[in-house]
Design a protein around this nucleic acid. Structure first.
Lengths: 117, 117
DNA sequence: CGAACTGTACGACCACTATCGAACTCAAGG
DNA sequence: CCTTGAGTTCGATAGTGGTCGTACAGTTCG
C-alpha cells in the first residue's frame, strides 16, 4: 500500500475489497469471535479500548497475539481502530458489514454458545 | 468410532454438538463455499449427486479432496449425505442451521461475489 | 529527560489443514 | 466373475496461520 498510512488509519480494508471468505475466516477463530462479541457488547460509536476488550473478554493471549487478531479483523473489514490518547479504540464496521452481508453479523452475534464448549 | 455407522449415515454432526466456529471455518474455505452454493442452487429435498456438484461448480479438485471437504461440511452440520444407488447425494441441513443461527446461511448465500475476486 | 503504559512489527516455532496419489469398498451391469 | 464407476481412507507433502518473545514506536506523567 503506497498510501501514506497515518497513525489513525492503519491497514483497514477498502469497502470494495472486502471478501466474504476473509470475514468468515476472521470470525471462525474463537479468540477473534470473542473479541468481536466483546466489542459488540461494550463498544458503541466511541468504540472500546483494546485493553478493556482484553479484560472484559477474559482472553489470556499476549499483546502480540491480540495485535495479530486485530490486524486480521481490520483487514477483513470487520472493525476500525483509531488512537485516543495513548489508548487504541476499536469498533465494529456495521455500516460496511451489514450492507455487504445483511444479517450475517446479527446471526453470529445472536449465537449464545460461547464457541468453546 | 464405537457407533456402528451405517453406509447411509456416516460421520454426521449431532444437532447439539454443532459449533459456530466449525460452521464458519467450513464456509471460510473457497472450495467448500462453492460446494455449499452449488448444493443450495441445484439441490432440493432430494439433494444433488456429488458428481453433479463437481460438474456444476466447476471445481477442479480431485475426488479425495472433494471427499475431504464433504467430511468437513458434514462434521460442521451443514450438510447431510446418503446413498442413492451407486451415487451419493448431498443436501443442506437448513432445518438445523436456520434454527441454530437464523439468517446466517441466507446471508452467506445471498452474497454475489464468488469469493475469489 | 526518563519511566511506565499501550500497542505494533518481526522472527521463530508448532499445529493444523488443503491437496494429491494410490489403494480400497461398494454398487451396477454385462 | 469381472469391469467400470463413485466415494472413502490413508500417507505424504506443502502451505497457512496461531502463538509467543523480543524489540520497537508513541503517549502520558513525574
Amino acid at each position: 500500500m503506497e498510501s501514506q498510512v497515518e497513525r489513525d488509519e492503519l491497514a483497514h480494508a477498502d469497502p470494495d475489497a472486502v471478501d466474504l471468505t476473509a470475514v468468515l475466516a476472521a470470525l471462525a477463530e474463537p479468540a477473534r469471535l470473542k473479541i468481536v462479541r466483546t466489542v459488540a457488547a461494550y463498544g458503541g460509536d466511541d468504540g472500546i479500548a483494546c485493553l478493556d476488550v482484553w479484560e472484559k473478554s477474559g482472553l489470556t493471549a499476549t499483546k502480540s497475539t491480540m495485535s495479530h487478531h486485530y490486524k486480521v479483523l481490520r483487514e477483513a473489514g470487520l472493525v476500525v481502530m483509531w488512537w485516543v490518547g495513548a489508548k487504541k479504540h476499536v469498533r465494529l464496521r456495521r455500516e460496511l458489514v451489514d450492507v455487504r452481508w445483511p444479517g450475517l453479523l446479527d446471526a453470529v452475534l445472536a449465537d449464545q454458545a460461547p464457541a468453546h464448549g
